[in-house]
Design a binder for these strands. Structure first.
Lengths: 253, 253
DNA sequence: CGGGGTGTTGAAGCCTGTCAACAATTGTGG
DNA sequence: CCACAATTGTTGACAGGCTTCAACACCCCG
């Protein structure tokens, strides 16, 4: 069940068998979280570091007016910052979009593990750097692209991240399929648009034959075209070891 | 010259005299960077960790079409991630907006220092968490607020962050003054608007008597009103020790 | 079969972008 | 110290992206 976590970490750092075993141990106690349930809640004091082992979740903030902005999608292997416990109070919430299997690693155990294992320490530090890079890319996306390109960019990113986890299927016609269990409303809250307008942009992307979206899945008929539309460059994801399934995806760039 | 860095870190963690001395040593070699010059450049391999000791800088990304999105303002005490060296290549640039005094801490020395001094380690880890929180707040700002509130929110944040550094002057009429050496074009690239529209929003804020902006300075006549407009809540900055100058600012919330 | 969540569509209007010209300010060199 | 150039700020008219509101279609689930 921690395959994705290992795949993600290994896109940056080669891990020994012992390191993997440590991860296994850290994530031994898991909890099933239903869709629409909290994984973390604004105002909470942090207790353990949540790790998504399967499913999809979203990090978001609510505004006074009731609107919501999603600031991250958490897919398998994604987790909160290792030092989260330093904060007295969480400033955002995390909610399951699809049923999730979550491990909550006690902060102390994670600290001990990374202090004892330099590879793990590097791997987790790398995760923090990439999470920040993704956040910067999202600021750019929302700030400087219009809806059409914006949605395309988000899809390119998720496609790439899922590829690293080897969670993308490719059929013999060249189309690529991945889970994307997100409603149009949630998509809208992610890219900073209205559900209505998001719907219209999706229709455009569909009518142009670039994607299909619905039924909790995304099909990309033409990855190159989508990346063209988005102006997508995968460099910010900092995949450093090309011996992963992401290889063939990187080469598209 | 490292007062700001110390003030910033101490808003989270009390530092011993020895810790402060370590910081002093780490930042001993400084470099003056003129306005509009690079501090870090996309595509570079990271060498040292830049720390802003004085001045203003901006982290940004350029898009294919030539547009720019600023993803962070770096004010005194701000710095890049301590583990930056783990990345092979930087995915964004940092440029001085005003003349800056910069220390480039060699990654190894910073690593040694934080391994030897748990307080420093905690302080730097806290910085990373706050940087991420700010980034999330920017995604929300650009994604879910309109220009008027968006600019107000940015000003509230910078006001707060400058307060922590004790860099805000308060006159006897209640107005608060802070350096804000940013052109309207740079402001526009920060909040995801056009320079023209940014100008119009600024005029509105001025005409309403909330702020004055220009001449490299921002004057806030009515902090409460500005926060009201912005829907600003300072919780995401995670100021944990109220014995700082930020105290009176927090109390406004 | 019914109901709630989700997706789709149309019309109207606002926020924001674009283009283009001009004013004000800053900086520089003579 | 002034004159000129370059940058920055300001304004108007117009267009376009996006929002809002509201109604309706669809689909999954009990």
């Amino acid at each position: 069940m921690i395959d994705s976590l290992i795949r993600k970490l290994e896109s940056a750092v080669a891990l020994s068998h012992a390191s993997r075993q440590t991860l296994q141990d850290l994530c031994s106690k898991t909890r099933q979280v239903e869709a629409r349930r909290y994984i973390l809640r604004e105002g909470d004091a942090p207790h353990g570091v949540p790790v998504v082992l399967s499913g999809w979740a979203a990090r978001y903030k609510l505004l006074a007016g009731g609107s919501r902005q999603i600031t991250a999608f958490l897919i398998p292997g994604d987790h909160c910052d290792r030092d989260m416990a330093l904060l007295h109070e969480i400033d955002h919430s995390i909610m399951a979009l699809a049923p999730c299997q979550i491990a909550y690693i006690p902060s102390e155990r994670l600290k001990e593990a990374t202090e004892a294992d330099p590879d793990l320490a590097r791997a987790f530090a790398w995760c923090t750097l990439v999470d920040e890079a993704i956040l910067r890319a999202w600021v750019v996306n929302v700030g400087r692209r219009e809806g059409y390109e914006r949605l395309a960019h988000l899809m390119c990113e998720m496609h790439m991240r899922m590829s690293i986890l080897d969670l993308v299927e490719k059929d013999r016609f060249g189309a690529e399929h991945l889970d994307f269990p997100v409603t149009q409303e949630e998509l809208a809250d992610t890219v900073g648009l209205t559900p209505v307008h998001t719907n219209r942009v999706l229709q455009r992307l569909r009518s142009e034959g670039v994607i299909r979206f619905g039924n909790r899945r995304l099909t990309i008929f033409d990855v190159k075209a989508l990346r063209q539309i988005a102006g997508f460059s995968p460099n910010y994801l900092h995949v450093q070891r090309t011996a992963t399934p992401a290889e063939r995806v990187l080469e598209l760039a």
